[in-house]
Every structure is written in structure tokens, then in C-alpha cells.
Simulated scan of single mutants.
Amino acid sequence: MAKKIAVTNQKGGVGKTTTCINISAELARLGKKVLAIDLDHQANLTKVLSGGESKFNLTVADLFSNHKVKIEDAIHQAKSDGDYIDNLYYIPSHITLSRQIEQCLTRVHRERILQRHLKKLEGDYDIILLDCPPSLSLSVTNAMLIADLFLMPIDGGRFALDGLSDLLDAIEEVKETNDVNFAVFRNEYASQNKLMNDFLTEQLQVINGKVLKSKVRRSEAIGQASVTAQPLKYYSKSALANRDYKELAKEILERI
């Protein structure tokens, strides 16, 4: 059965989508068959893993709007610069997702919509990554219900940890357990920012054991790769942050 990882944080701009893109590419490189699901109506993950495509017959919005849709028909193989990426697949999102989510709010078992679709894929993938928007929308609660690990990037800002406790409370409520498997890691890490690094290290002591050793350094190449609709390793093999994603992927595998 595929291990499911929800990349989530209520704070926007901390690098959830870039993390999901580059970790999925790295896990695929390690030989894992990976499916990335874009649960954000902005569809940024879709733009990168599709190699810049924007038109799809079926998207994740259709999965929420119609239980009869075959999830297999919404899956595409990821591409970079026109070439397919081995072992990496994705389900695209669309701007209409937010509207479809609103229409689902009165449905029975609405928090299990994604779970029911994914049951049809049992045995097909090793890892499923869920790219969550910075909210507690129905798409996120669907991800919360099925996730085996919650991966939470935090950036180097003063308010990096804001909302973390509320998010954990929400996850515990949805999963009906106090034993949530989550991991936090430093994203956009700048080693020279000693004051902020010391502050965050102190703040993170309250979740000792849940903080990953891996850190993803701040790099202009990461943003440039997204603009060109490529995972970092395909945009620039020499970028130092590639090492960070390799270490992060290995540490994630240990957690699941």
C-alpha cells in the first residue's frame, strides 16, 4: 500500500509546492513510483510537473465533483523540457477546484472523497504526495484523513511557526488521535542568519524529535526552476540545493 505524505502548513509562502515538486522528483530518482496530487487551485505544482501544460480533460476538481470519474484517467506522467520523468506521475489541479469544494460541503462523507478514489490505485504506487494549500479547506481535510506523514516546511521568517499548533490540533481532530506522525524541516535556510537560526532552534525544542536534520538552503535556482517549469535537478544539476533535497528525501523515507 502506498505511503501518503501531506505537505502542509497554514502559512503561505513557506515552500510547500517547491518541496513537493523536488521531493517527488528525488524519490522517483531513488526508484520509488511516485504520484503527486495537486490540491491547490492555483495549480503551481501542475504547471511544473506538466512541463508548462495548462489544459487537461480531467483534474482533481473532477474527482471532488463526480465520484464516478475514473481516477486513472486523471493521472499523467511528469515531464521536464519535453521528456518524460521516470517513475513520477501527477494529478493536475484547476482554478475551479475551490468552487467544486464549496459544492461538496453538503455531501455525506465529504472528508473521504479522496480516500475512496485512491482505493482504486492500491498497489500501483509506492508513495503519494499531497500538495496542500495554506488553509483548512475540504481538500486539506481529505488529505489529513489519509496521510501517513505530515511534512511541514518552515522558512526563516520571524513568524515561521505561527499556526503550527493550530494545524496539529486540526490534524488530531480529523484523524481522531493524539499520535500524529509529522515532521518539520527548515526551508530557505540561510546559515549566515545566526540570530534567526538561534531563535528558531530554541522555538523548535518543544517538538524535539519531530524536527528533521535536513535543511534546504535558500537558492535562486529553486525559483528559477519553477519559472521554467522544471524540478530543480533537471533545471540545474550543479545547484547545491539538490544535495539538500536528496538528504531530505532519504530522511523522509526513514520516517515512513
Rank of each mutant, 00 (worst) to 15 (best):
M144F: 13
F150M: 12
D131N: 01
G12Y: 10
G223N: 04
V7K: 09
P231V: 14
F56K: 12
K250N: 09
K175T: 02
L30W: 05
L232A: 13
E53K: 15
I21Y: 05
A183D: 06
R112Q: 13
Q103K: 14
D131S: 02
N197C: 04
D166P: 06
G123V: 11
A239V: 03
L204P: 11
T59C: 11
C104E: 08
D198Q: 06
Y235D: 08
S226W: 01
I37P: 03
I95E: 09
I23Y: 05
S236N: 11
Q100R: 14
N87F: 05
I127N: 01
A78C: 13
Y235Q: 10
I21M: 10
N22A: 12
K250W: 05
Q115I: 14
A2H: 09
I127C: 10
S135Y: 04
R217E: 07
I252F: 00
I127M: 05
I252K: 07
N242W: 01
G15F: 04
V227Y: 07
R112W: 00
K3I: 05
S191M: 02
I113K: 15
N178F: 00
R107Y: 14
I113W: 14
E72I: 12
E220G: 12
G31W: 05
G13A: 11
E220N: 09
L45T: 01
M144Q: 11
T17H: 05
Y245N: 15
G156L: 00
A2R: 11
V211C: 08
S139K: 01
V140G: 13
G157S: 10
T96P: 00
D124C: 07
L58H: 15
E172S: 12
